[in-house]
Design a protein around this nucleic acid. Structure first.
Lengths: 192, 192
DNA sequence: CTCGATTGTCTAGCAGTGCTAGACTCCTCT
DNA sequence: AGAGGAGTCTAGCACTGCTAGACAATCGAG
C-alpha cells in the first residue's frame, strides 16, 4: 500500500504546484496570461494533466482564491491584533485589507472578482471564505453600534472597502487621497 | 455633397445599431456571449464591418459604457429631484444607483467593471463619465459635513455603493438585507 | 522473472475567440 | 461610358479551453 500512498503524495504535490504556478503567472502577467497551455508548459507537463486535477480553468482560479482567502484572513487578524483601541483596530484592519488588494491584485480578483465556481454566503461556502469573513467580523462586530446587527455592519464595511479597492485598482479613483478616504470611512461608520 | 452626407448619416446610424445590438446581446446573455461573429450576424453585416467603426471589441464596450453612464446620471438626477430633504435625497439616489446596477448589469459592468479603454479621473476622461460623477456630487456634496471635501466624500460614498452593487450581484452578499444595508450606510455616512 | 492489466501521460484535434489581408463588387464622378 | 475609389466580403491567422484516443510506464499475479 505504500506505493499507492507515495503516488497520492506526488499527486497532491503536483496539485500544489499547479495552483502556485497559476498564481505566480497571474501576479506576473495578469489572469489573461494564464492559459492552460502556458500553465502546462510552466509545470513541465502537457495540458491534459491539468484536467486530471481540476475540472477546468475555473476550478484552478477557485483554488487560488481559497489560498488567498486564508492569507487575507491571516493578514486581517495580524493587523487587528497589533492595536488595542477598537477604532485604531478598524483602521489597521482597513489598511491591511486595502494593502492586500493592492499588492496581490491577481489573488484578490480570484477571490472577489472572477468566477472560480465558489459558493458565497451560503451553507456550502468553503471554510476559508467563511473564515475570512469571520476574521473581519471579529474586529468590525465590536463597533457596529447599538441595535445594529454585527453581521450586517460587517457586510457594509466590507463592501465599502471592496468598492474602494476595486475602483482604485481600475483607475476609477485617484490614488493620492487613499489615506483620507479610509480615515473618513472609519470615522463615520465606526461607533465606539 | 449630399450623397456624401447621406453616407455619413448611414454610417452613424449603423454605428448606433452596433452599440445598441451589443448592449442588447450583453443584457440578454452576458458579455461573454458578445462575440464579434454573433454581433456581426445580428446586425446582418460581416465581421470586418465592425472594425471600420471601432478599433476592436474593447471600443464597443467603451461605447456602451458611455451611453450607460449618461443614463445612470439621468437616473440619479431624476431620483434626487423627487425629494426635498437632503438625507431623503441621498437615500433615493442610493436606491436608484443600486437599482440601475441590478437592472442593467451588463451596462453597469461595461462602465465600471470591464475594460472599455476609457480614461477615468483624468483630464481626458470622456464627458459622460465626468457628468455621471457630477450627478452624484450634486446630491452627495451637500451632506459631506463640515471640513470634508465634497469630492472626497462623493468618492467614498460612491465606492461604498459600488462595493454593495458588485458584491450583491456576484452573490457575495445575501440579497435579503439590501434595504437595511443602504439605510445604515446613509445613516452613518451622511451629515446634515 | 515474466507477462497481462491498469494507470498515467502525451499527441493531435475540435470548436470557438479577436482580428486582418486581399479579393471583389458596386457606386460615384469625370 | 468607363476609370477610380469606397465599401464589403471570404478566407485565414494565431490563439483560447477542452478532450478523444494512442501510447508507454508501472504494478501485481503466477
Amino acid at each position: 500500500m505504500s506505493v499507492h500512498e507515495r503516488k497520492q503524495r506526488e499527486q497532491a504535490e503536483r496539485e500544489r504546484l499547479i495552483v502556485a504556478t497559476a498564481r505566480e503567472l497571474a501576479e506576473q502577467q495578469g489572469w489573461d496570461a494564464v492559459t492552460t497551455r502556458r500553465l502546462a508548459e510552466r509545470i513541465e507537463y502537457s495540458q491534459p494533466v491539468l484536467y486530471s486535477h481540476f475540472r477546468g480553468k475555473r476550478e484552478i482560479i477557485g483554488a487560488v482564491a481559497l489560498d488567498g482567502a486564508a492569507e487575507l484572513a491571516a493578514a486581517a487578524r495580524s493587523a487587528a491584533s497589533a492595536e488595542d483601541d477598537p477604532r485604531a483596530r478598524v483602521t489597521a484592519l482597513s489598511r491591511a485589507y486595502l494593502d492586500f488588494a493592492e499588492q496581490h491584485p491577481a489573488v484578490y480578483d480570484a477571490i472577489f472578482q472572477l468566477d472560480g465556481g465558489l459558493a458565497f454566503a451560503q451553507d456550502d461556502t468553503p471554510e476559508p471564505l467563511k473564515d475570512a469573513f469571520a476574521a473581519l467580523m471579529e474586529t468590525l462586530g465590536e463597533v457596529a453600534g447599538e441595535g445594529v446587527d454585527p453581521g450586517l455592519f460587517t457586510e457594509l464595511f466590507w463592501a465599502s472597502l471592496h468598492g474602494i479597492a476595486t475602483l482604485t485598482r481600475a483607475g476609477r479613483l485617484p490614488r493620492e487621497f487613499a489615506e483620507q478616504r479610509v480615515d473618513l470611512l472609519v470615522e463615520r461608520l465606526v461607533v465606539v
